[in-house]
Design a protein around this nucleic acid. Structure first.
Lengths: 362, 362
DNA sequence: TAGAGCCTGGACAACGTTGTCAAAAGCGCG
DNA sequence: CGCGCTTTTGACAACGTTGTCCAGGCTCTA
């Protein structure tokens, strides 16, 4: 009964308009009953069924019962596509993020979902995989579905393509990173301040040769955190050796090389500041494999960080709070508040667990 | 600029039909241009615009150019709601899971999304929070949107409410746990076999008093894994003391108590088998806080498990593969394959890292 | 018991798109 | 120049729902 990997059947990503136009219209939804059918069965008018389904007033209890029975008997379920077409609101919002599988985005996504749920909306989400084209493709697909609003963790750095959509009334909030070349609501963590505090913490414990490993430079948070690193170093009047700084993709290979390099270079670092959770886990592995202790502070909290030895000191950001704040801002827009676009910055929190308090070695 | 927690503005979860019926029809989508507008501007017929938008043949290059220009100028975007209404396919699928924030479901969700993407479909997902009513509410909301198919990680144990939907042609696949009281495709991990192997591993390392902490008994996987535990114990002719077995919610409090109890009871266990990832992380914490070593094998892999000391031995299941397999099965259904409902069981893999090889103490 | 007023129910048009089908336009050929 | 043929184009009717509006039945009062 066991089964091994299967190859994914990749097919044309067109609209699936396979010219089967001759198909009997009724066959489309597999013979789903409509309000008309319910009305016929209950012996009432179409609009009366609509009223019952929507709980509108003005229906006799007796009539209502008859309609309910017919609905039950036929297994009728209102077609929301038609409803949306008529009403203009879909009661759904879109969330575009980088990768649902990243533990940072799970709680964020869940928080957005909860807020959406509280407002009676469903959540459609997609992963951009950090690809600007894919982001745009996704966003426009969501707009074509007429989502009421969008929460976007941008991969692109130019969002002018959204202008017509926003003008047309699609509420939009960016999270985690600011939008490019347009003005819109943004909810961010204080990357600059968090990184500065984290690095200052290492300095306070005696380190002076501190490495920084971050994400690709086109990503806003990577730049901000690097800026925080430089600010902390400058505050302590430490000159940064550029061999201590490494930006790039956060796959384990790249990060491992970067870490090894700065730990063994001409001027080896005694501490590392990791720019996000992906970087942190790899650096933890690198450090664990060495004999000489290396201090570490990471941006983003990670599960079980407290159980490693030493525990991993981190600058924690509250992913759920980011998502919640963004979603609430979105629904505020949808409720008609027309405030000017705003930048909301959430504070980070330094959690000391040991790895950041390791004294410099060598 | 910093800001602290805000209370969620919970409002009526109705359809938001705020009787603003007098609103100008054109205002609904915020004055979005329609094909009719494009046609007027380009000086062509409505259907010609439709043809251009859908890349249908039979349009002169010159006409096409005029239409494209009009589309560009007006910022036209096809309204998929109308399209769906007309065509009967939404090119979207629903995923109902327990909690998007759980690291087990992130990769699963992402895998489903990838397959959907390869088929040109969007993914709508919702969390049931392990609440049967909420599951049903979500599923029916998705059906009302006429998703083409559903991937469900069930919280309920009776899915007869889905019968009319399935009959109406909604493709349905269950993952991780089987459906209740209906016949449908299911993709599962081999919970029984995995747990049996994990417990047998502990027995092979000399343990005889082994605890089992699992999820609530109404959850299928909890029962299967317990069954695996019992089978391994029976194979080794060890009689199970019922104080060694604990099923219930997997919140840290409950698990902590359960673990403490079986580690300090009249017949204390020397090893624990943890029924899922939530249980494992809590048990790891409990064990770390004690002086006497306790062996541990957990179901589900967890990040950084290899870096703890000892590393956590686990029975790993491939969440991404579960999602991928289920989604592929779903699209097979949608492509018209009408195979009988099938049960697909994926194998688990024992990963030894130290905690499962700790010898019995005391 | 007639008239006013309320309550219930239904006919109808719209929402924006696509499938059908027929008309118009272009073209080659006798 | 007219005929048949192909190609391009557009008018029109659906899809299933909801908002508007009116008709008919009822109650209540004078």
């Amino acid at each position: 009964m066991a089964e091994t990997a299967r190859t994914s059947v990749s097919r044309l990503r067109s609209d699936g308009s396979s010219t089967d136009g001759t198909a009997d219209a009724k066959r489309r939804y597999g013979n789903r009953p409509t309000m008309k059918d319910v009305a016929a069965r209950a012996g009432v008018g179409l609009k009366t069924v609509s009223r019952v389904v929507n709980g509108e007033p003005g229906v006799t209890p007796d009539t209502e019962r008859r309609v309910q029975e017919a609905i039950e008997a036929l297994g009728f379920r209102r077609n929301d596509s038609a409803r949306v077409l008529r009403k203009g609101r879909t009661a759904s919002i879109g969330l575009v993020l980088e990768d649902l599988a990243d533990p940072f985005y799970g709680p964020l996504s869940r928080a957005v979902e909860e807020v959406a749920r509280a407002h009676g909306a469903l959540l459609i989400n997609g992963s951009s995989a950090e690809d600007p084209d894919r982001e745009q493709e996704l966003v426009l697909a969501l707009c074509a579905r007429r989502v009421d609003g969008l929460v976007i963790i941008p991969a692109a750095d130019d969002h002018r393509y959204l202008e017509p959509e926003i003008a047309a009334g699609v509420a939009t909030v960016f999270v985690d990173r600011p939008p490019g070349r347009i003005d819109a609501d943004v909810v961010l963590s204080d990357s600059f301040g968090g990184a500065r505090d984290g690095v200052a913490h290492l300095i306070a414990h005696g380190h002076r040769r501190i490495g920084f490993i971050g994400d690709q430079p086109r990503i806003h948070t990577a730049i901000e955190r690097l800026r925080g690193y430089r600010a902390a170093m400058a505050d302590a009047e430490i000159e940064v050796d550029e061999s201590w700084v490494s930006l790039g993709p956060t796959d384990p290979e790249r990060v491992r090389h970067a870490a090894e390099a700065m730990l063994t270079g001409a001027s080896p670092v005694t501490a590392v500041f990791a720019g996000n959770n992906r970087v942190t886990v790899t650096v933890v592995r690198v450090i664990a494999a060495r004999t000489r202790p290396v201090a570490l502070v990471g941006f983003d909290d990670i599960e079980l960080a407290d159980l490693l030895s030493p525990g991993v000191t981190v600058v924690a950001q509250d992913a759920a709070q980011l998502g919640r704040t963004a979603a609430e801002r979105l629904f505020r827009q949808l409720d008609g508040a027309s405030d000017a676009p705003e930048l909301i910055e959430l504070p980070t929190r330094l959690i000391t667990r040991g790895s950041g308090e390791v004294p410099p070695a060598g």
